[in-house]
Structure formats: C-alpha cells, structure tokens
Amino acid sequence: MNKPNVKGQRMVALFLLGNLLFNYPLLALFNKSETVLGVPLLYVYVFGAWAGLIALLAFVAEKR
C-alpha cells in the first residue's frame, strides 16, 4: 500500500469520527444545564471536539 492511500484512509476515518461526535446521541449526553467555568457543557463539548478534530486533521495532513 502506498503512503497517499493511507493518508486518504485516515482522512476518511476522521470524517466518520466527526460525524459520530456531532451526531444526536452524543450531543444529547452533553445537553445539560451544567456549566464549566461559566460556559454551558454542550458548548464546551462542541468546541472541544471541533478543536480536537482540527488538530488530528492537521497531524494527519502534515505527517510524512
């Protein structure tokens, strides 16, 4: 298997992970009236997961 094919497969896997993270069942787990440092828990989850996905995508895209 050549390297560009592996990179593409990892990108597809991260896309599927993003779909899973931002789909209803997981979002419903964090939709509570609790706060983290004054920020609603759902917002912390959404922006944390988004930042994590961006970091993973950057890592996969830049890896040689």
Results as ranks from 00 to 15, higher is better:
L14V: 11
I54M: 12
M1T: 13
E62P: 03
Y45H: 11
L14Q: 06
A13G: 07
V39R: 11
G48T: 00
L42P: 03
L37Y: 12
L27G: 06
L26D: 02
G48D: 00
E34F: 04
F15S: 06
A49E: 04
A28E: 11
L42F: 07
K32V: 14
F22K: 02
R64T: 06
A13M: 13
N2W: 10
F47Q: 10
G38A: 13
N23P: 02
V36K: 09
Q9T: 09
L56Q: 08
F47A: 11
L53M: 12
L20C: 09
N2C: 12
A58K: 14
A55H: 09
E62F: 15
G8Q: 12
N31C: 02
A58Y: 13
Y43I: 06
L27W: 06
F47I: 10
F30L: 05
G38V: 08
K63P: 00
R64K: 15
V46T: 14
V6I: 15
G8W: 05
L26W: 05
L37T: 08
N23A: 14
A51S: 11
L42H: 06
N31M: 03
A49Y: 08
P4F: 11
A49R: 05
V12S: 01
L26P: 03
L29G: 01
N19R: 07
A61M: 03
K32H: 10
M1V: 15
Y43Q: 12
K3A: 14
K63A: 13
W50K: 14
P40R: 06
L21D: 04
Y24N: 09
V36Q: 10
A49H: 06
I54P: 02
L57K: 02
R10I: 05
E34N: 09
F22T: 02
E34T: 07
M11H: 10
P25D: 08
W50G: 15
F22A: 04
V12A: 05
V60E: 14
L56R: 00
I54V: 15
Q9I: 08
L57M: 03
L14T: 02
K32D: 08
A28L: 04
L56F: 10
G52V: 05
V39Y: 09
L57Q: 03
L29N: 01
